[in-house]
Structures are given as C-alpha cells and as structure tokens.
Design a protein around this nucleic acid. Structure first.
Lengths: 132, 132
DNA sequence: CTTGACCCGGTACCATACTACAGGGTTTAT
DNA sequence: ATAAACCCTGTAGTATGGTACCGGGTCAAG
C-alpha cells in the first residue's frame, strides 16, 4: 500500500481526520492528487509534516506562523536573500522563546531547591522569572 | 499612589482592561480588596504577575497550565514534596520545549547557510527538526 | 457642582483551531 | 452482492482566550 488515505494519515499522525482536511484548507498541507473516486492519496512521509505542525504549536507558534516556517523552503520562485531574511527572523523568535523558557526553568529550579530542605517556605520565587 | 485601579494595572502591564477582569474570573489573578465604591485595589507588583502570564502563554502554556504554575507557591496547606513534584514535572516540560526549539533553530540555521552558498537546495530541512 | 474620564457587573460577540454531523458516494471483506 | 467501514463536501458547533458594549455608578479637575 503505497499511499495513505486521509483516515490512515490521521491515525498515523495521531490527529483527528477532520484536522487533516482543515490543514489542507488552511494551506498547511498540500492539495494532493486524488483517486478517481475523489479519495486523497497521501505519501507516507506526510506524517512528519503533521507531527512538525503539532510540535511547533506546542512551542507557541500559531498556524499562521507555522505556515511561514513551512514556506521557508528554497525554490526557484523565491529569491535566496528573501528566504534567508525570513529564516533569520524566525531564528530570532526561537532564541527569544528559548531565553524565556530558561528563565522559567531557573525560577522553578530555585523553587524546588528551596522546597527540598524544610517543610514550608514563605515566599514564591516563581514570579521573579520572566520580569523583563 | 499606593494601589492601582484595574485600568492602571492593565495599562502598566500592556493588556486590555477586560483581560484583567477575565483573569480574575479564571482565577489567574486574586480577588483583591475593593474600595467602598467597588473599585479594585491592586498592589503595583501585580504587573509582574500579568507579564508572567503573557510570557508563559507565548511559550505554549495554556491558561490552565499557567494556573498550575502559579499555584506552585509554597503555603502551609500544600505539602512540600507535592509542590516539588509538580515543579519538577514542569521543569521537564520546559526542557523538552527548549530541546525542540533548539532543533528547530538548527534546522533553520542549516537552511540559511545552505542559502548563502548555492542558489537552490532540494529538500526542506525544517521538517527534520521535531521528528521524535 | 458639573463634566469627562474612569470603574462596575453582565452579557454578547470575536478569532483561532479544531470537531461533529448530515447526506451522499466508495471500498472491501465476507 | 451486500453490509460495514471508509471517504467526500459543506456546514454547524465547540473550546479557549479574549474583547466590546450596555446601563449605570464614581472620581477628580476646574
């Protein structure tokens, strides 16, 4: 079985079948060729694309931003400097996210170490994180 | 001026005034004392709390999860080991997010370096990021 | 002591990202 | 060859996280 139907793809990727069709409408998945019956024919590696979308969402990217990430592929229609500019902007976004996560982690780590010794502690260090 | 009104707090924190009341309803902000007129009286450091919420959201935490993070404060009603356990679970979440972001960043960096050299590249490296 | 800017609760509406369902056709295993 | 299990489009409904508006009361500067 070379190609996956919509339902098989959904199952493989661990999402609802409607999500697949929704992503196609949103342009996050390409419009793949159909059988004579109208059934979509997905190449098996489309699973990776859906998983990518799901992971990126968990990292705080909107579907619109994920579209942008996915469109950062090099083709003959997009000039090289443009792709590069967009990719670099995204890298900056990502670096900021990483910094914020590190601050959060630090605050939580401080909390746990404060916690490990005694039975109770008075104040909460967590709010100290992420104060710009 | 010791206390902030809802509007002042919103302005300081850079959010809509309705958001403040919404967060109160959701339990993300405490029910603060009121003036005789019914006006809320916020201590100035409540600004930090709102900023924390906003940052955490941008990192992919839902308001529900942020509630959980905020409830990781040590009080006499929560046993220490429980707070610790929850904080450590959140730290693990955060570490995973950081790892995923690093993978994404790496993929994008590879894309930009591929771009600077030649004219075109065939496949999209970003999908390789975040493949579990 | 008024007038414009603010606050109140309550309700309704909005965008995003799905999810369900209706009504109909298709595939596949028995 | 027929029933269960699938797919199609289109439309409607849901959850989350706000945002807007209403009718009314409050505050503070002139």
């Amino acid at each position: 079985m070379r190609y996956l139907t919509t339902g098989q793809l959904a199952k493989e990727a661990g999402v609802n079948i409607e999500t697949i069709r929704y992503y196609e409408r949103r342009g996050l998945l390409p419009k793949v060729p159909r059988r004579a019956s109208g059934y979509r024919q997905y190449p098996p590696d489309m699973v990776r694309r859906i998983r990518f979308i799901k992971h990126a969402q968990a990292l705080g990217f909107s579907l619109k931003e994920i579209s942008e990430l996915l469109s950062l592929r090099l083709d003959k229609n997009t000039p090289c400097y443009e792709v590069k500019r967009r990719a670099e902007a995204k890298i900056k976004d990502i670096e900021e996210k990483i910094e914020n996560l590190k601050r959060m982690k630090k605050a939580l780590a401080r909390l746990t170490s404060a916690c490990s010794g005694k039975g109770t502690v008075l104040d909460c260090p967590i709010l100290e994180a992420l104060d710009n």
